[in-house]
């Protein structure tokens, strides 16, 4: 074509590729990344490495921890007491996650679809207390539920007799739910907000009855939010030790309490490190399985 056959009188040769200063690319973004990345690698990543290294170490006679290459700490984890405790933590975390889902769904649904003008206010009313002191909120429950607390004195006044709430699994799980349910409500709320409402209308025509509509339309549409929320609740719940510390007792201790004891009471840091590493490995394995399962289900859904 003629357009290709033009003469190029005034065009200088293209500069060699190597010398060419790039117009678009700039070193700025890399420079900006350098300092925070160095910080996070320096503090966070390297501290994780130290935990792993120390988990193979031992405690000297004078109580000082030293690095080593032994598996004794991991062997020590294989005993009935610890395994029961691990199982208990896992059960608490799973039950907490399920209860959070059961609470989050109706609450997010009511606010997203029937909140009207007050939607943001209602969500803010949930968010604000949840970001305010976790410790104080746990303390508040322990004060409420204690033997001489409001609930028990009211029960006694009504002639029903006192009930022991504290030191029970119910109180610990209740505390965990109270502590983390917001992480379930927000993603479910977000996915309900993004959902096409006509789907529900269509579902009502198609399936008759709100329950079948819920299971065949609403639930699948908010699956991603639900799966994300479950992860966000499960992770901190499994590592929690404040709820069991303030609302429970030795019979309801979780992994977090155990680790905390090794570091701040028992002073067996290598054992504590091994527990921490074991927990992280367990969490990673669970997460990989979970993400595999949920992403394939999401894909099938799509």
């Amino acid at each position: 074509m003629a357009t290709r056959e033009v003469t190029r009188p005034s065009a200088p040769a293209t500069p060699p590729a190597g010398r060419r200063t790039s117009v678009q690319r700039t070193k700025l973004w890399g420079t900006l990344l350098a300092l925070p990345t160095a910080w996070i690698v320096g503090f966070f990543v390297s501290s994780m490495v130290i935990v792993v290294l120390l988990s193979f170490g031992r405690t000297q006679r004078d109580g000082r921890p030293v690095f080593g290459t032994r598996l004794t700490n991991y062997d020590a984890l294989w005993n009935e007491v610890y395994l029961r405790l691990f199982l208990r933590s896992l059960t608490y975390a799973v039950v907490t996650t399920l209860i959070c889902a059961l609470i989050a769904f109706p609450v997010a649904y009511a606010i997203a679809l029937h909140g009207g003008r007050f939607k943001s206010v209602l969500i803010a009313a949930i968010v604000v207390p949840f970001f305010a002191s976790y410790l104080i909120r746990m303390y508040a429950w322990s004060a409420l539920l204690s033997d001489d607390g409001v609930v028990n004195s009211a029960l006694r006044k009504a002639g029903l007799g006192g009930v022991q709430f504290l030191n029970t699994p119910y109180a610990v799980i209740g505390g965990l739910v109270y502590g983390y349910v917001v992480f379930m409500i927000l993603p479910v709320y977000a996915s309900l907000e993004r959902m096409d409402l006509s789907l529900i209308e269509a579902g009502k025509d198609l399936y008759h009855g709100p329950l079948r509509t819920f299971f065949s339309v609403t639930l699948p549409a908010t699956r991603a939010g639900l799966f994300g929320g479950m992860l966000l609740v499960f992770l901190p719940a499994l590592g929690d030790f404040v709820s069991a510390q303030l609302l429970g007792g030795p019979k309801t201790y979780m992994i977090g309490n155990l680790i905390q004891q090794q570091f701040l009471e028992g002073q067996n840091w290598p054992l504590g490190s091994a527990m921490t590493v074991a927990m992280m490995i367990g969490l990673t394995v669970l997460m990989v399985i979970y993400l595999r399962a949920t992403t394939t289900r999401n894909r099938e859904q799509a």
Partner: peptide
């Protein structure tokens, strides 16, 4: 989990 971060920071 925050307890892991806490333990790691303590050791660090």
């Amino acid at each position: 989990p925050e307890i892991v971060t806490g333990v790691a920071a303590l050791l660090f």
